[in-house]
């Protein structure tokens, strides 16, 4: 399991970096797919097959297909090389690294790591669907419904904006 975690996390990070580095949009999309798939594998090593399957169905299965569809619709084969100041590139890389380190430190200091015993309710090979649904539709019922209303509003807005005015 340890080895699987290292391999999968290496693939996930490598693919995530390649999403940015690749200059062809469709290849970026496929690297994003690889990254999502590797993350789903990591969920499996954490004994959470339901979340792994959901990761594959929703993110890898549906969202990336939409991305690729839009990219193909735009028919963009290659991104135009951007002229960029080297100093700005250097500063932004430095800033990104700094932000990453700060997030890592704040994660170590926070209570999230201490509460892992509570989080493991979702894990475990048996009954994880039931446990998840009890948490989602019991304790967090109102936030869950609010999010679905938000999504509905977003959908209606998207349809309204893209509709041709007659």
């Amino acid at each position: 399991m340890q080895l699987a975690f290292w391999i999968l996390s290496f693939i996930a990070v490598f693919a995530a970096v390649m999403v940015i580095l690749s200059d062809r949009p469709i290849v970026s999309g496929l690297f994003l797919l690889l990254s999502f798939t590797a993350i789903s594998g990591i969920y499996l090593t954490l004994a959470a097959p339901f979340i792994a399957a959901m990761q594959l169905v929703v993110y890898a299965g549906a969202i990336i297909v939409l991305f690729l569809f839009v990219i193909m619709l735009l028919n963009q084969h290659r991104e135009a090389p951007s002229k960029r100041n080297k100093f700005i590139t250097f500063v932004s890389v430095l800033g990104a690294i700094l932000i990453g380190v700060l997030i890592y430190i704040s994660l170590l200091k926070s209570k999230i790591l201490l509460s892992y015993t509570k989080m493991s309710a979702v894990g475990g090979m048996k009954n994880n669907v039931e446990t998840l649904s009890v948490v989602m539709f019991g304790k967090y019922f109102i936030p869950f419904e609010l999010i679905s209303i938000l999504l509905l509003a977003a959908m209606v807005a998207a349809v309204f904006l893209s509709k041709k005015r007659v």
Partner: peptide, 23 residues
């Protein structure tokens, strides 16, 4: 069958198949 995701496993993998066609 204990893994409890039976049908989701099929949907998750079947969703990957279309990438072959797209790519």
């Amino acid at each position: 069958p204990d893994t409890n995701i039976g049908i989701l496993y099929i949907f998750a993998l079947a969703g990957m198949g279309v990438y072959g066609i797209i790519v």
